Simulated assay, not measured.
Amino acid sequence: MTQSQVLILQHVPWEKPGRIATALDEIGLNYQILNIADKKKPDLPAFDEVAGVVIMGGPMGATDYDKYPGLKAEAKLARAAIAVNKPVLGVCLGHQIIATALGAKLHKGEAPEIGFAPIKRVDKHDYFSMWDKQINVLHWHNDVVGLPEGAQLLARTTNTKVQAFRAGSALGLQFHLEVSSALLEEWLEESSMVKDLKAAGGSKSQLREDFAQYNPLLHPLADQVFTGFAARCNSYARALARRDEENRPKDPVIC
């Protein structure tokens, strides 16, 4: 019997799962990280062996299928997972991939949102039970999406109406809770990220100062969100294991 695992879809080397992977590690749940963005026919693990799906961020557009054909496979996977109540988590680009896969529209925002700025919590969910009405989080995006039909809006900003949403078994986050201090330093070593930061009027030193200020509150909230997701994946993995055990051929009875 093949052990189930969480599938993490990463699009560029520096947009790592960070605290998401930490939460999976802490409960001993296996995961596989793949980059399929440029593959027309990606080699994915068997769907029945996947206990959860994580779709990370990246600089491409969520529907840029001509240049990145693998994004279409990611959207299809997200829809299939949600249809069977398999846990799905999307961050930034991943948030947009899930939303557009469910029928929401993608478009350019009024202006890039890069750096720390407040979001307003609109509604509560198990993932967001500790959240105050307003909190400063790390933003890094240009595109924005609408709310998928039937989805629950969780957070917004003035320029980005959908900062977080829940749709069935999926959670989309436009902002970056996954970033630890170590991962932030990797971002600040990546020239394309620094270029975006400077174009938005930010600086490395200011971003480091803001991270030091806001991280003490964000870290426990990130832990709550990602440990909640990991627990859901673990429950799904246990359900898969029970199903496999029930379907396993029984040894013959010898009289």
Rank of each mutant, 00 (worst) to 15 (best):
F165N: 08
G146Y: 01
N159M: 08
V137R: 03
T160E: 14
L171N: 03
T160Q: 14
Q134N: 11
R166S: 14
K161V: 06
L138W: 06
R156P: 01
D132K: 11
L171K: 03
D143N: 14
Q163S: 10
D126P: 07
R166V: 09
Q163G: 10
V145Y: 01
F165H: 07
L147H: 08
K124W: 05
N142W: 14
Q174F: 00
I135H: 01
W140M: 12
L173P: 03
T160N: 14
V162D: 00
W131E: 10
V137I: 07
D132V: 04
H125M: 04
V162R: 02
S129H: 12
I135Q: 14
N142T: 10
Q174Y: 00
A151V: 01
M130G: 13
I119S: 05
D132P: 11
A155C: 01
N159F: 05
L154M: 11
D126T: 15
D132R: 10
K133Q: 14
V137G: 08
T160L: 10
G168Y: 04
T160R: 14
N136H: 11
A155R: 00
L147R: 05
L147K: 07
G146R: 08
H141R: 05
H141L: 05
H141P: 02
G146F: 02
S129G: 08
V122A: 13
L138Y: 04
A155D: 01
H139L: 04
G172L: 00
